[in-house]
Design a protein around this nucleic acid. Structure first.
Lengths: 147, 147
DNA sequence: CCTTTTTAGTTGACTTAGTCCACATTTAAG
DNA sequence: CTTAAATGTGGACTAAGTCAACTAAAAAGG
Protein backbone atom coordinates (compact mmCIF):
# COMPACT_ATOMS: atom_id res chain seq x y z
CA UNK A 1 0.00 0.00 0.00
CA UNK A 2 1.32 3.37 -1.09
CA UNK A 3 2.43 5.51 1.86
CA UNK A 4 1.77 8.74 0.03
CA UNK A 5 -1.85 7.81 -0.64
CA UNK A 6 -2.46 7.08 3.01
CA UNK A 7 -0.94 10.40 3.94
CA UNK A 8 -3.09 12.18 1.34
CA UNK A 9 -6.20 10.59 2.75
CA UNK A 10 -5.25 11.61 6.28
CA UNK A 11 -4.87 15.14 5.03
CA UNK A 12 -8.25 15.04 3.38
CA UNK A 13 -9.72 13.75 6.63
CA UNK A 14 -8.31 16.73 8.52
CA UNK A 15 -9.63 19.05 5.87
CA UNK A 16 -13.09 17.56 5.85
CA UNK A 17 -13.24 17.33 9.63
CA UNK A 18 -13.02 21.10 9.69
CA UNK A 19 -15.77 21.49 7.11
CA UNK A 20 -18.09 19.10 8.90
CA UNK A 21 -17.26 20.91 12.14
CA UNK A 22 -18.57 24.15 10.67
CA UNK A 23 -21.75 22.42 9.58
CA UNK A 24 -22.15 20.96 13.01
CA UNK A 25 -22.08 24.46 14.49
CA UNK A 26 -24.96 25.52 12.32
CA UNK A 27 -27.05 22.56 13.34
CA UNK A 28 -26.61 23.69 16.91
CA UNK A 29 -28.45 26.87 15.97
CA UNK A 30 -31.52 24.76 15.29
CA UNK A 31 -31.44 23.44 18.87
CA UNK A 32 -30.64 19.97 17.65
CA UNK A 33 -27.28 18.27 17.72
CA UNK A 34 -25.66 16.59 14.75
CA UNK A 35 -26.42 13.24 16.36
CA UNK A 36 -30.08 14.10 16.77
CA UNK A 37 -30.29 15.26 13.18
CA UNK A 38 -28.78 11.99 12.01
CA UNK A 39 -31.31 10.05 14.05
CA UNK A 40 -34.22 12.04 12.65
CA UNK A 41 -32.94 11.54 9.14
CA UNK A 42 -32.52 7.79 9.50
CA UNK A 43 -36.03 7.45 10.89
CA UNK A 44 -37.36 9.39 7.92
CA UNK A 45 -35.55 7.12 5.45
CA UNK A 46 -36.66 3.79 6.89
CA UNK A 47 -39.90 1.92 6.96
CA UNK A 48 -40.56 0.00 10.16
CA UNK A 49 -37.51 1.59 11.74
CA UNK A 50 -36.62 0.30 15.20
CA UNK A 51 -34.25 1.88 17.70
CA UNK A 52 -31.73 -0.90 17.41
CA UNK A 53 -31.29 -0.22 13.70
CA UNK A 54 -30.20 3.27 14.56
CA UNK A 55 -27.92 2.11 17.35
CA UNK A 56 -26.08 -0.11 14.90
CA UNK A 57 -26.13 2.14 11.86
CA UNK A 58 -25.10 5.31 13.68
CA UNK A 59 -22.98 3.63 16.37
CA UNK A 60 -24.73 5.34 19.23
CA UNK A 61 -25.04 3.87 22.70
CA UNK A 62 -28.41 2.19 23.33
CA UNK A 63 -29.14 4.10 26.48
CA UNK A 64 -28.30 7.36 24.79
CA UNK A 65 -30.53 6.44 21.87
CA UNK A 66 -33.35 5.63 24.25
CA UNK A 67 -33.11 9.11 25.75
CA UNK A 68 -32.91 10.84 22.39
CA UNK A 69 -36.03 9.01 21.25
CA UNK A 70 -37.87 9.83 24.45
CA UNK A 71 -37.00 13.49 23.95
CA UNK A 72 -38.29 13.31 20.38
CA UNK A 73 -41.48 11.70 21.59
CA UNK A 74 -42.01 14.39 24.23
CA UNK A 75 -41.49 17.03 21.55
CA UNK A 76 -43.84 15.10 19.29
CA UNK A 77 -41.32 14.70 16.47
CA UNK A 78 -41.79 10.94 16.35
CA UNK A 79 -44.38 8.32 17.18
CA UNK A 80 -43.70 4.93 18.68
CA UNK A 81 -45.78 1.90 17.85
CA UNK A 82 -45.09 -1.52 19.28
CA UNK A 83 -44.80 -4.30 16.72
CA UNK A 84 -47.75 -6.66 16.73
CA UNK A 85 -45.63 -9.68 15.90
CA UNK A 86 -42.74 -8.95 18.27
CA UNK A 87 -43.54 -6.81 21.23
CA UNK A 88 -39.88 -6.11 21.98
CA UNK A 89 -39.69 -3.97 18.89
CA UNK A 90 -41.02 -0.46 18.62
CA UNK A 91 -41.55 1.04 15.19
CA UNK A 92 -40.51 4.65 14.90
CA UNK A 93 -41.94 7.16 12.49
CA UNK A 94 -41.79 10.91 12.05
CA UNK A 95 -44.85 12.99 12.79
CA UNK A 96 -45.76 15.92 10.60
CA UNK A 97 -43.90 18.14 13.03
CA UNK A 98 -40.90 15.84 12.87
CA UNK A 99 -40.83 16.10 9.09
CA UNK A 100 -41.02 19.86 9.34
CA UNK A 101 -38.12 20.02 11.77
CA UNK A 102 -36.05 17.75 9.55
CA UNK A 103 -36.86 19.87 6.51
CA UNK A 104 -35.78 22.87 8.49
CA UNK A 105 -32.48 21.27 9.42
CA UNK A 106 -31.94 20.35 5.79
CA UNK A 107 -32.70 23.86 4.63
CA UNK A 108 -30.14 25.30 6.96
CA UNK A 109 -27.69 22.66 5.92
CA UNK A 110 -28.34 23.46 2.26
CA UNK A 111 -27.78 27.13 2.92
CA UNK A 112 -24.44 26.41 4.47
CA UNK A 113 -23.43 24.19 1.57
CA UNK A 114 -24.32 27.01 -0.80
CA UNK A 115 -22.08 29.32 1.18
CA UNK A 116 -19.33 26.76 0.98
CA UNK A 117 -19.70 26.63 -2.81
CA UNK A 118 -19.97 30.37 -3.19
CA UNK A 119 -17.83 31.64 -6.03
CA UNK A 120 -17.56 28.33 -7.84
CA UNK A 121 -18.83 27.74 -11.33
CA UNK A 122 -21.50 25.12 -12.05
CA UNK A 123 -18.82 23.07 -13.65
CA UNK A 124 -16.68 23.17 -10.51
CA UNK A 125 -19.65 22.11 -8.45
CA UNK A 126 -20.38 19.24 -10.78
CA UNK A 127 -16.81 18.07 -10.59
CA UNK A 128 -16.98 18.14 -6.81
CA UNK A 129 -20.15 16.07 -6.84
CA UNK A 130 -18.62 13.56 -9.20
CA UNK A 131 -15.54 13.31 -7.03
CA UNK A 132 -17.71 12.73 -3.98
CA UNK A 133 -19.74 10.08 -5.77
CA UNK A 134 -16.55 8.32 -6.79
CA UNK A 135 -15.25 8.31 -3.23
CA UNK A 136 -18.51 6.92 -1.91
CA UNK A 137 -18.74 4.26 -4.54
CA UNK A 138 -15.18 3.01 -4.14
CA UNK A 139 -15.17 3.11 -0.36
CA UNK A 140 -18.49 1.32 -0.13
CA UNK A 141 -17.13 -1.37 -2.40
CA UNK A 142 -14.02 -1.64 -0.26
CA UNK A 143 -15.95 -2.00 2.96
CA UNK A 144 -18.02 -4.80 1.45
CA UNK A 145 -14.90 -6.76 0.55
CA UNK A 146 -13.29 -6.32 3.93
CA UNK A 147 -16.40 -7.40 5.79
CA UNK B 1 -27.57 26.73 -7.68
CA UNK B 2 -28.50 23.18 -8.61
CA UNK B 3 -30.68 21.55 -5.95
CA UNK B 4 -29.53 18.08 -6.85
CA UNK B 5 -25.89 18.98 -6.30
CA UNK B 6 -26.65 20.34 -2.84
CA UNK B 7 -28.51 17.18 -1.99
CA UNK B 8 -25.63 15.05 -3.27
CA UNK B 9 -23.20 16.96 -1.11
CA UNK B 10 -25.42 16.53 1.94
CA UNK B 11 -25.44 12.84 1.26
CA UNK B 12 -21.68 12.75 1.00
CA UNK B 13 -21.47 14.60 4.28
CA UNK B 14 -23.58 11.97 5.99
CA UNK B 15 -21.46 9.26 4.45
CA UNK B 16 -18.18 10.83 5.47
CA UNK B 17 -19.43 11.70 8.94
CA UNK B 18 -19.77 7.98 9.55
CA UNK B 19 -16.29 7.27 8.28
CA UNK B 20 -14.71 9.99 10.37
CA UNK B 21 -16.73 8.73 13.32
CA UNK B 22 -15.08 5.35 13.01
CA UNK B 23 -11.67 7.00 12.91
CA UNK B 24 -12.52 9.02 15.94
CA UNK B 25 -13.20 5.83 17.87
CA UNK B 26 -9.78 4.52 17.11
CA UNK B 27 -8.11 7.69 18.28
CA UNK B 28 -9.86 7.17 21.58
CA UNK B 29 -7.90 3.94 21.96
CA UNK B 30 -4.72 6.01 22.08
CA UNK B 31 -6.07 7.90 25.10
CA UNK B 32 -6.25 11.11 23.11
CA UNK B 33 -9.36 12.64 21.66
CA UNK B 34 -9.74 13.76 18.08
CA UNK B 35 -9.54 17.36 19.27
CA UNK B 36 -6.31 16.72 21.14
CA UNK B 37 -4.83 14.98 18.14
CA UNK B 38 -5.71 17.96 15.97
CA UNK B 39 -4.06 20.31 18.44
CA UNK B 40 -0.89 18.24 18.56
CA UNK B 41 -0.79 18.10 14.78
CA UNK B 42 -1.24 21.84 14.34
CA UNK B 43 1.52 22.54 16.82
CA UNK B 44 3.81 20.20 14.92
CA UNK B 45 3.10 21.96 11.63
CA UNK B 46 3.67 25.52 12.80
CA UNK B 47 6.68 27.55 13.72
CA UNK B 48 6.13 29.99 16.56
CA UNK B 49 2.69 28.56 17.17
CA UNK B 50 0.61 30.33 19.79
CA UNK B 51 -2.54 29.10 21.49
CA UNK B 52 -4.72 31.68 19.83
CA UNK B 53 -3.79 30.38 16.38
CA UNK B 54 -5.15 27.01 17.36
CA UNK B 55 -8.27 28.53 18.89
CA UNK B 56 -9.04 30.24 15.61
CA UNK B 57 -7.93 27.53 13.23
CA UNK B 58 -9.61 24.66 15.04
CA UNK B 59 -12.53 26.67 16.46
CA UNK B 60 -11.98 25.53 20.01
CA UNK B 61 -12.93 27.57 23.07
CA UNK B 62 -9.99 29.47 24.56
CA UNK B 63 -10.43 28.15 28.06
CA UNK B 64 -10.73 24.62 26.74
CA UNK B 65 -7.58 25.12 24.72
CA UNK B 66 -5.82 26.42 27.79
CA UNK B 67 -6.68 23.22 29.64
CA UNK B 68 -5.67 20.97 26.77
CA UNK B 69 -2.31 22.71 26.58
CA UNK B 70 -1.81 22.48 30.32
CA UNK B 71 -2.51 18.77 30.14
CA UNK B 72 0.01 18.42 27.31
CA UNK B 73 2.56 20.34 29.33
CA UNK B 74 2.02 18.14 32.38
CA UNK B 75 2.47 15.09 30.17
CA UNK B 76 5.54 16.73 28.64
CA UNK B 77 4.23 16.55 25.09
CA UNK B 78 4.81 20.26 24.52
CA UNK B 79 6.97 23.10 25.77
CA UNK B 80 5.83 26.65 26.32
CA UNK B 81 8.11 29.63 25.79
CA UNK B 82 6.98 33.19 26.30
CA UNK B 83 7.66 35.53 23.41
CA UNK B 84 10.41 38.06 24.09
CA UNK B 85 8.74 40.80 22.07
CA UNK B 86 5.15 40.27 23.30
CA UNK B 87 4.80 38.67 26.67
CA UNK B 88 1.14 37.87 26.13
CA UNK B 89 2.11 35.28 23.58
CA UNK B 90 3.43 31.84 24.39
CA UNK B 91 5.17 29.84 21.70
CA UNK B 92 4.28 26.20 21.68
CA UNK B 93 6.42 23.36 20.41
CA UNK B 94 6.39 19.59 20.59
CA UNK B 95 8.91 17.79 22.73
CA UNK B 96 10.50 14.57 21.54
CA UNK B 97 7.82 12.71 23.48
CA UNK B 98 5.14 14.82 21.82
CA UNK B 99 6.44 13.93 18.40
CA UNK B 100 6.46 10.26 19.34
CA UNK B 101 2.86 10.39 20.53
CA UNK B 102 1.80 12.16 17.36
CA UNK B 103 3.62 9.59 15.24
CA UNK B 104 1.80 6.94 17.17
CA UNK B 105 -1.56 8.53 16.54
CA UNK B 106 -0.71 8.80 12.86
CA UNK B 107 0.34 5.17 12.68
CA UNK B 108 -2.96 4.04 14.12
CA UNK B 109 -4.78 6.36 11.80
CA UNK B 110 -2.85 4.96 8.84
CA UNK B 111 -3.73 1.45 9.88
CA UNK B 112 -7.39 2.30 9.93
CA UNK B 113 -7.19 3.94 6.53
CA UNK B 114 -5.55 0.79 5.19
CA UNK B 115 -8.46 -1.22 6.56
CA UNK B 116 -10.86 1.16 4.90
CA UNK B 117 -9.11 0.65 1.56
CA UNK B 118 -8.83 -3.09 1.96
CA UNK B 119 -9.80 -4.88 -1.20
CA UNK B 120 -9.29 -1.96 -3.53
CA UNK B 121 -6.79 -1.94 -6.36
CA UNK B 122 -3.96 0.60 -6.47
CA UNK B 123 -5.82 2.25 -9.28
CA UNK B 124 -8.97 2.63 -7.18
CA UNK B 125 -6.93 4.14 -4.36
CA UNK B 126 -5.30 6.57 -6.74
CA UNK B 127 -8.65 7.66 -8.09
CA UNK B 128 -9.90 8.24 -4.56
CA UNK B 129 -6.86 10.36 -3.77
CA UNK B 130 -7.33 12.38 -6.91
CA UNK B 131 -10.99 12.92 -6.11
CA UNK B 132 -10.07 14.07 -2.63
CA UNK B 133 -7.45 16.44 -3.96
CA UNK B 134 -9.98 17.91 -6.38
CA UNK B 135 -12.50 18.49 -3.61
CA UNK B 136 -9.91 20.17 -1.44
CA UNK B 137 -8.64 22.34 -4.21
CA UNK B 138 -12.05 23.52 -5.37
CA UNK B 139 -13.45 24.09 -1.91
CA UNK B 140 -10.38 25.98 -0.78
CA UNK B 141 -10.71 28.19 -3.80
CA UNK B 142 -14.39 28.74 -3.04
CA UNK B 143 -13.78 29.70 0.55
CA UNK B 144 -11.20 32.25 -0.51
CA UNK B 145 -13.65 33.95 -2.81
CA UNK B 146 -16.46 34.04 -0.29
CA UNK B 147 -14.24 35.51 2.41
C1' DC C 1 -41.60 -28.18 26.63
C1' DC C 2 -38.67 -25.80 29.74
C1' DT C 3 -34.31 -23.76 30.48
C1' DT C 4 -30.83 -20.77 28.49
C1' DT C 5 -29.41 -17.29 25.43
C1' DT C 6 -30.19 -13.46 22.64
C1' DT C 7 -32.56 -9.23 21.31
C1' DA C 8 -34.80 -4.77 22.39
C1' DG C 9 -35.23 -1.27 25.30
C1' DT C 10 -35.13 1.43 29.88
C1' DT C 11 -33.15 3.59 34.01
C1' DG C 12 -29.64 5.45 37.28
C1' DA C 13 -25.21 6.92 38.11
C1' DC C 14 -21.38 8.65 36.23
C1' DT C 15 -17.47 10.72 33.18
C1' DT C 16 -15.73 13.83 30.17
C1' DA C 17 -15.94 17.11 26.42
C1' DG C 18 -16.97 21.52 25.71
C1' DT C 19 -19.10 26.26 27.05
C1' DC C 20 -19.74 30.58 29.56
C1' DC C 21 -18.20 34.22 32.10
C1' DA C 22 -15.31 36.91 34.85
C1' DC C 23 -10.74 38.13 35.43
C1' DA C 24 -5.50 39.49 34.95
C1' DT C 25 -1.91 41.11 31.82
C1' DT C 26 0.05 43.12 28.20
C1' DT C 27 0.06 45.56 23.97
C1' DA C 28 -2.10 48.60 20.49
C1' DA C 29 -4.98 52.62 19.29
C1' DG C 30 -7.29 56.97 19.65
C1' DC D 1 -3.01 58.61 28.99
C1' DT D 2 -7.07 56.50 28.84
C1' DT D 3 -9.48 53.03 26.38
C1' DA D 4 -9.82 49.13 23.62
C1' DA D 5 -8.16 44.81 21.89
C1' DA D 6 -5.42 40.54 22.22
C1' DT D 7 -3.73 36.52 24.92
C1' DG D 8 -4.38 33.52 28.30
C1' DT D 9 -6.25 31.44 32.91
C1' DG D 10 -9.60 29.66 36.44
C1' DG D 11 -14.21 28.51 38.33
C1' DA D 12 -18.57 26.94 37.64
C1' DC D 13 -21.47 24.81 34.75
C1' DT D 14 -24.08 22.16 30.79
C1' DA D 15 -24.67 18.73 27.89
C1' DA D 16 -22.98 14.76 25.30
C1' DG D 17 -21.94 10.34 25.78
C1' DT D 18 -20.75 5.93 28.55
C1' DC D 19 -21.29 2.01 31.70
C1' DA D 20 -23.64 -1.31 34.12
C1' DA D 21 -27.65 -3.34 35.91
C1' DC D 22 -32.21 -4.44 34.94
C1' DT D 23 -36.98 -5.99 32.64
C1' DA D 24 -39.43 -8.27 29.18
C1' DA D 25 -40.03 -10.81 25.20
C1' DA D 26 -38.56 -13.96 21.63
C1' DA D 27 -35.40 -17.51 19.79
C1' DA D 28 -32.51 -21.46 20.35
C1' DG D 29 -31.61 -25.97 21.74
C1' DG D 30 -31.41 -30.00 24.35
Amino acid sequence: MNKQSISDIRQFNRFYTKILGLFNDQILETNYTLTEARVLFEISERTECIANNLVQELRIDRSYMSRILRKFEREELIEKKTSLTDSRKTFLSLTQKGREILDNIHSQSDEQIEQLLDGLTDRDVNEICEAMALIQEKLSKAKMNSK
